[in-house]
Each structure stands twice: as structure tokens, then as C-alpha cells.
Write a protein that binds this DNA or RNA. Structure first.
Lengths: 329, 329
DNA sequence: CTGTTAGCGCATTCAC
DNA sequence: GTGAATGCGCTAACAG
């Protein structure tokens, strides 16, 4: 009986009467609707979109931006009636990326193993889209104006009169280790976001020095901040590549008895609300994270429908907070 | 040719030679392994475990405990070779819970809509397991010793000499609204965790007064704290039902010029690290959140295998931090 | 150890 | 508008 199928698929020309009969019969047999396994075999689609996040869940979601990305993705997927498969990309071993049913993949952030993930999806013929990560051929991406945005922040500091400005960058490559920002480290860098933000900063302060953080966390920023502020010729401003790092730098400054922004100006990046660091209204660039998530999911859905899509670019917005001021003296 | 199937299924008695031939042929046709859709139809299993979280992703993951739960679930699922479907339970509209392929469901926390979720899964014949939520008939649960643990905290405060102790509870029911802790509110409460923790606290301080928070967030704790500390006969200690709420109470105290623990003792619950509130080492009960996540996933997997499983109980551990001291005077 | 066979539950075509 | 046939790609059960 094809009629039943039509009833459950929503559309189709079915008389109201028959429709009712089908539903009643279904209720009586307590039939819970078509079996998703059979349906997806027949239709060639599973209605599932995989979202690949970095490493373990707990690491990935320490970053509020990642959560906001996922929130946007989740909303768009949910609106489209699809389901969201969360795939932590552990690196080694079998991921569900290799074996689970999925119609498309969204890569979030830049795990050390993205390339392997892209390859896996390609082999399976599953379209891929990337969000906030390294660009790949044939992978439409949702990207941010990281370079220009960071240049804006650097320009803000320069306009205030700062000349000795240091930076705390996000990890530059797969190995997450704290490091000085050396020329070699920069040459070997692979993480787009970090590289672009650094380039933006250096477009204003060409020989800016700094520290490469091991992760985007407050504690990392604190350690990095201590290192930078202990230097003999200590900077009058620090440009951190994320708000979490910036919060850490502020903590480090306070511990050293420096006031922000009196003795030290600090800027971040992302525009998340760190509500635990309440007194500080950070000067930062606000990125529309949830919107980017939605956009990435929409790209994925379009690719499932066979459309040829182009990458999308988003803009972040300058927010002048209370953590920047002219240098003292 | 069933041999090919055996090669990809891993096991099976296949000669090395044939095995090689199959793999070579597969590589040549670049066959990426069996189609998961067909495989799951045939086997009657999809290899997918759904995890239902509260509302939107961004709300659910504001709580570090929820993230740790998911981390544990993710690890166990991944170890077992399964995949994780993330289902935000929006309440209205179609959830992927109704239509996506899944072999089991893990309910995390207590969304206002759990009962509907349980019903949906039942209709579909999918086994359900719950984690940190309201108990249901035929739903094995992973539970914490919330009552005893909170009694321990209350006992600690009493032993220090505190007599005027107020509490800030988690939301008691589906409607998330800040409220005084009235008898009616308690009578109407449905959220197990909050009710149990309250009962534990009242087992030591029977007529303890307090505030019901609208959510487990620092900002909520701050507002609640201000309210409690503005009272004429202000408490000498506050028992908050989560660490985030406790952090907020501490902020409120500081804003009012009260020192912690000098003028006010504060205890929390959960044992998360709020690394942005660095100076404060909170007195709290540490719950093994990731372990509970693993356990819940393990229960789900056992139920898929047809085993009859019982609920599991976990214990939290007292951590004496620096936020409690005897009352002044 | 290897090849053949049947059917998982559905959506789609085609007749009516 | 409705009912009857076909096969999606695989794996479990069997025969060789």
C-alpha cells in the first residue's frame, strides 16, 4: 500500500478519509512511523549531518565560540528537519566518520586531523563544508575577516599611542605546546585563524613579539601574560587572539599589581561573554558565531541538494570596552 | 559474495589471499566500505546512540557539568564503535528523536519535556537511559547522592558554627523563573536534583530560607546573592546548589564589601573548575561527571544488547576549599 | 573456506 | 485517488 507511505511522507494526493483510516490503523498497531533505516536505504539519504569537532568533547567545548558554532549549526539542522551527529575527531582509531550514515559533514575549527577527515569524507562521497578552519580545495568554507579585524584592534592600540605591543596567539599548528613566537614557529604555522590574526596585527606592528598559547583558555593566557609582563621592557598593551586568553592576561596583570587599563591595555577576540570575569568589559572584536554556524549548516544542506555553493565570509565588529586606554606617561 | 562482507565486518574465516584480493578490488573501485544505510537495515541496528539534551545547545552547554557528562558519554560511545546523535529537545515541533535512526537514547539532565521524550522513544521501541534527571518507570538511571552530599556540606557549615544559613537552589520545575523559596514552590517541585539537594540541606537546617535560581549560571547566583545579602538579618553562610551559582554569590558578596570567607561562607556543588574565578578555591562536593556519562552510555549499550540493567549510583566527594570559615564574632 | 540466495522495510513506478 | 510490483545494498543462513 503506497498510500500509507504517502501519508507519512507528508505530501501526496490522499483523500482526507483514507488519510484518517491510515492514521487510525497506525495508532492501533502502534506503528511509530516508517523505519528510518529502511527509509534511508530506499531514499539514499539518512537525514543526518555530521559535525566534526576537535578531539574530545570536553576540550572542544571549553571554547565558548565552539559552543556558539554548534548552537547555530544545531538550529539550522533542526529547522531543516535533519539530525546532528556529533563526531569528536580523536585522531587515531576508528571514528564514526568512517562508518556512520551521514549525508554531509561540517568541519568545525581546525583539529590536527582535519585533512584525514576530509579524505575520509571524500572517499565516502560525502560533501564537506568547513567552519573556522583551514581552507581545503573543494571544501566550501565559512570564514571570518580575521586579518582585517585584528588590524582594527591593532590600529585602535596604535591610535591610543601604544608602541610596545605584544601578542598571545592561538596554537599555530597541530602540536599544542606553549612557545615563544619565533620566526620558525610562524613559518611552520598551519592554523588559518591564528595566522590571519597574526598577519593583521603585524600589518600595524610589524615586529610584534609574543607568545604562542597551547590552547584558548584563561589559564593559558595567564601563564602567557606572566611571561610577557615579566620581560624587562614590558609591553604597554597586549593583543590576545581570543577573549579567554585576554582574560588570562588581565588576571596575570592584576597578580603583578598592574592595573588594566591604567598600566596595561588588553584586547581580545571573539566577543563572548565571560560572565565570571564580570568587572571587565573587554575591548574585542565580536564575531557572529551562531550565524556562522547556521551558515555552515545551510551550505551543507545545499550541497546535499546537489547545489554548487561558494564560501561565505562574515565580518566581526569592533567593541570598545574598558580594557584599553592610552599608555601611562 | 559474502566473503567481501566478512572482510569488511572484521572477523570471519577468510584466507589471507582472498582477503587481499577483496581489499585490492575495493581499492580499485574505490569502494569505501559497506553502505551504512543498507547495513543498518539488514542488521536491524544503526550503531547510533541519541543523547537528548535540554533545549538549545548553547543553554545546555553553559553548564560545565553537562559538558563533562557529554564527554563521558562520547568516550564510551566512541570506544564501543558507535556514533553519537545530539538531539536538542526544543519541546515543540519535530525532533530528530522522532525520525532519526537510533538504537538507544540517553536523556541528560531534566529538560521540561523529558516525559514526552520518553514516550516518543517508547513508541519507537528504543531503550532509554537517564542521567542526572527525573526518574521514570522502566528507565534505568545514573544517579548521584545529592541528598547525602548536600547534607555533608550543610553539616560542614553547622560544625563551623553557622546557624543563619540560606540557600540558592537550582530551578525546581519546568518554568525557569527566579523566585523566593516558598513552601508552595517546594511542593510543586519536579526536578529531582534540586529537590534532593534541598532535602539534604534541610536535614541539617530544617527551616532554611533561600532563593530559587532561574538557571545554573554565575549571573543568576550574583542576583540571588544580592537578594539574600540585602536582607536585614543576613545569613553568615550560603549554600548554593551549583558551583556556578556559588561563584555568583561570592561576586555579590564582594560587591557589597563582604569578604569571603571572613564575613560570609559559601559552598557550591559539582566540583567543576571555574578557572576564571581563580583566587577562589570553592568548598564543594565534587561529582564524577565524566564517569557518570560513561556509565550512562554503558547502560544504554547494555540495553541494546538486550541485557536487563539496573540503575547506578555515584558518590560525590567533599572538597574543603577556602570559602568556608567560622562565622565572625 | 567460498559462492549462492533471500529478504530487511520502505518509496517509487506503473497500472487501475 | 489507490493497490501491486520492484529493488535500494547489504548480511545471515545455507550449500558446496
Amino acid at each position: 500500500m503506497s498510500t500509507a507511505s504517502l501519508v507519512f511522507s507528508g505530501g501526496g494526493p490522499v483523500s482526507e478519509a483514507t488519510r484518517g483510516k491510515v492514521l487510525t490503523a497506525a495508532a492501533e498497531l502502534d506503528y511509530a512511523g516508517p523505519d528510518p533505516r529502511a527509509r534511508s536505504l530506499r531514499r539514499g539519504r539518512s537525514g543526518v549531518i555530521a559535525v566534526v569537532i576537535e578531539e574530545r568533547v570536553i576540550d572542544a567545548f571549553r571554547d565558548p565560540v565552539a559552543i556558539a558554532f554548534l548552537d547555530g549549526i544545531g538550529q539550522e539542522i533542526s529547522d531543516s528537519g535533519a539530525a546532528l551527529l556529533l563526531v569528536p575527531d580523536a585522531g587515531g582509531g576508528h571514528t564514526s566518520l568512517e562508518s556512520a550514515a551521514m549525508d554531509a559533514v561540517v568541519l568545525v575549527g581546525c583539529s590536527p586531523h582535519v585533512d584525514r577527515a576530509v579524505q575520509t569524507a571524500r572517499r565516502r562521497g560525502v560533501p564537506v563544508v568547513s567552519l573556522g578552519g583551514t581552507p581545503f580545495a573543494d571544501v566550501p568554507a565559512v570564514e571570518l575577516d580575521d586579518r582585517e579585524a585584528t588590524a582594527t584592534l591593532a590600529g585602535h592600540l596604535r591610535d591610543l599611542g601604544h608602541r610596545r605591543v605584544a601578542t598571545v596567539t592561538l596554537p599555530l599548528g597541530p602540536e599544542r605546546r606553549r612557545d615563544r613566537l619565533t620566526a620558525e614557529a610562524v613559518a611552520a604555522a598551519t592554523v588559518r585563524t591564528a595566522v590571519e590574526r597574526l598577519a593583521g596585527a603585524r600589518s600595524v606592528f610589524p615586529d610584534m613579539d609574543g607568545v604562542v598559547a597551547a590552547s584558548s583558555r584563561v589559564e593559558e593566557g595567564r601563564v602567557a601574560g606572566r611571561e610577557l609582563l615579566a620581560a624587562p621592557d614590558r609591553p604597554t598593551a597586549v593583543l590576545a587572539q581570543s577573549d579567554l586568553l585576554a582574560a588570562g592576561v588581565i588576571l596575570a596583570a592584576e597578580e603583578l599589581g598592574l592595573s588594566v587599563p591604567g598600566d596595561l591595555s588588553v584586547v581580545g577576540f571573539d566577543g563572548i561573554r565571560i560572565d565570571t570575569v564580570v568587572p571587565h568589559d573587554l575591548t574585542t572584536m565580536v564575531q557572529p558565531a551562531a550565524d556562522q554556524g547556521r551558515a555552515a549548516a545551510a551550505l551543507a544542506i545545499a550541497r546535499i541538494d546537489g547545489q554548487d555553493v561558494a564560501s561565505e565570509h562574515f565580518r566581526s565588529e569592533f567593541h570598545r570596552g574598558g580594557t584599553t586606554a592610552p599608555p601611562r606617561g
